[in-house]
Nucleic acid binder design. Structure first.
Length: 455
DNA sequence: GCGATCAGAT
DNA sequence: CACATCTGATCGC
């Protein structure tokens, strides 16, 4: 996981490590199993080491994307014909057997460390410590190939979300998924453990946990963008700044609304045409002259969307003289989006030339969505997937507060031993003051401010 | 001298 | 813009 993941990215008590492949300083536990949720660069640290030699479980799409991964410098060298062969960062993870001209096959040195599992298919895995777990992958609504992991074994059931966006339709898909239904919380809190099971923990994508205002659904965001785009002249060219994996919903919405293909660079085209989404496989083109819609290489755009004057980057004309409009994904709450839509419509109606359009496509859930998601399961605990290192655990305390009301109802006091109850009471008393303070800060940069005061 | 790791800017 | 990516400095073998 990105820097600041609790427990060195282990899913305790299992010796399973997620999205971290380099040995951390002071790390005592040796991973018995590696999981990879998706291929954004901060989730694959350590995998580039040629010395890495363990099996990694991921989705088929993540495997495809990882093996095709090219850093920008390599793409640039190749496209400018300074280098014919492309160095793919993760090619050492899959080395094919050598097939000779006489038909014989040499397996020496061949390997395939990426073990791709299909979605919604519980798979029993034997770990290197002889323990067995069942792992199930679910689409995470974050970027192509991104998954959540359900881990079931002798030490309990844990759901690791990876990075995900739990918008309303996603919650519905969870509720209707037969592999997760056993873990859904029931209205009757006393039925715990009898007719349903309880998740011991949810390892949660907390990238946007400090945002307490609602953000538009991806469908609302793309629908609004399309509205605006349709108000612009039919001759306008668009550069869609999809600068990282996860903005494909924008490309798909544009392609569908305008019944047009989208110009992609060689790298994006290769990735999109080799993953499982049939729409994504179909919407790209390598013919730059065939479309007004471009998502080609950001720093080496084709002539149709290259700026006419590099010294005036705000120009609205392309090198070919076309009216040029940028489409930029941003994070924006629902209220700001509504007013942005209104304002922009007025600007267009007033004859103003538009240089850029924003689209609030969030790939992470803000706090309200996270609380709804956790409440579906009422797990015993929530563990943040990432923390801000500078806060020294203060954000973890705040996060505990935020989800206290979404967890399993603890057993009545009579079922706990007297000493344990006393200990709990003392701890609770100690926590109360701080928790109240933290609760008041939820939703702003308050936690960060407080930590800076303490530092 | 290289790779791993981190801070900082975009 | 964004919170993923790139860059350059630093550390350690």
């Amino acid at each position: 996981m990105p820097p600041g993941a609790p427990y060195n990215s282990f899913v305790l008590p299992y010796r399973i490590r997620v999205d971290a492949f380099a040995t951390a300083v002071g790390q005592e536990m040796v991973p018995a199993l590696h999981l990879l949720s998706h291929t954004h660069s901060d989730h694959i640290t350590g995998l580039q080491a040629k010395s890495f030699g363990s099996v990694v479980i991921c989705s088929h799409d993540a495997k495809e994307m990882l093996l095709r991964h090219e850093v920008y410098a390599e793409r640039s060298l190749h496209e400018n014909e300074y280098r014919a062969e492309i160095n793919r960062t993760y090619s050492h993870l899959k080395i094919d057997p050598l097939i000779c001209s006489d038909g014989s096959t040499y397996y020496t040195g061949s390997r395939d460390l990426l073990k791709a599992l299909p979605l919604n298919t519980p798979t029993e895995i034997e770990m290197s410590n002889d323990e067995r777990v069942t792992v199930t992958l679910f689409d995470a609504n974050h970027c192509p190939g991104a998954v959540m992991f359900l881990i079931q074994g002798d030490q309990g059931a844990i759901l690791h979300t990876g990075d995900f966006r739990a918008e309303p339709w996603f919650l519905d898909s969870i509720i209707h998924n037969p592999f997760l239904q056993p873990y859904l919380a029931t209205d009757d809190s006393h039925s715990d453990g009898t007719f349903n099971e309880r998740l011991d923990a949810i390892y949660l994508d907390t990238a946007c946990v400090m945002s307490s205002s609602a953000v538009p659904t991806k469908a609302c965001a793309t629908a609004g963008l399309i509205q605006l785009m349709k108000l612009l002249p039919p001759t306008a060219y668009f550069f869609i700044n999809s600068w990282t994996w996860g903005y494909e919903d924008v490309l798909k919405a544009i392609s569908r609304a305008f019944r047009s293909k989208i110009h992609l660079d060689r790298y994006k085209y290769a990735v999109y045409t080799n993953i499982s989404d049939p729409v994504l496989r179909a919407i790209g083109t390598r013919d730059e002259a065939s479309t007004r819609f471009h998502a080609c290489e950001r720093f080496e755009r084709c002539d149709h969307v290259a700026v006419a004057d590099p010294h005036r980057p705000t120009t609205s004309r392309s090198r070919k003289g076309d009216h040029l409009v940028y489409v930029n994904p941003v994070t924006m709450d629902t209220t700001s989006w509504e007013s942005y839509l209104q304002e922009t419509k007025l600007r267009i109606a007033g004859g103003e030339t538009i240089h850029s359009l924003l689209v609030p496509l969030s790939r992470h859930s803000p706090l309200p969505e996270l609380q709804s998601f956790v409440s579906l399961f009422r797990p015993r605990r929530v563990v943040p997937n990432t923390l801000i290192p500078g806060l020294h655990g203060l954000d973890w305390r705040a996060i505990d507060c935020m989800f206290a009301g979404c967890l399993a109802t603890p057993p009545p006091p009579s079922e706990i031993s007297a000493s344990a109850a006393a200990q709990l009471a003392t701890q609770e008393q100690m926590d109360t003051e701080m928790d109240t303070a933290l609760q008041n800060l939820v939703g702003g940069d308050g936690v960060r401010d407080l930590a800076e005061k303490w530092a």
